[in-house]
């Protein structure tokens, strides 16, 4: 059974690109189009990692991180933020909310794979 990763991004193009990069590394990828869909999926799934965008409708990346961290069962779930945002304020906000790491787009597949290996135990 391969390791499962949830990607959360409102852009289908970005989800497709992430899927290609991660499945190429042997991971199993599930996708959600915003934070709300991600929370619904997480109600019945236990991925090894969540990779989330910040700007999304319904529930954004900050909201998603906060809701995930509010559940004791997801205390140790790594959450990587993958975003076009590069402001220190937003990065600090994600960190305070409980994000595990911050990656600025456009992502580099080799760097992403290395980060994924580091945070998945």
């Amino acid at each position: 059974m391969s390791i499962q990763i949830l990607t959360v991004d409102d852009s289908p193009s970005m989800r497709a690109l992430l899927r290609a990069a991660l499945t190429g590394e042997g991971y199993r990828v599930d996708e959600a189009e915003d934070g709300r869909s991600a929370m619904e999926w997480l109600a019945s799934n236990r991925p090894a990692l969540v990779i989330t965008d910040i700007n999304m409708p319904r529930l954004d990346g900050f909201g998603l991180i906060a809701e995930v961290r509010a559940q004791a069962q997801f205390n140790a779930l790594p959450i990587l933020v993958l975003t076009t945002e590069s402001s220190p304020e937003k990065k600090a906000r994600a960190r305070a909310a409980g994000a595990t790491g911050w990656i600025v787009k456009p992502f580099d597949p080799a760097k992403l794979a290395a980060a994924v290996r580091r945070v998945i135990h």
Partner: peptide
């Protein structure tokens, strides 16, 4: 070209 620092990862 993609900038050399594109996709840099910062782990908290």
């Amino acid at each position: 070209a993609l900038p050399a620092d594109s996709g840099d990862v910062e782990l908290f």
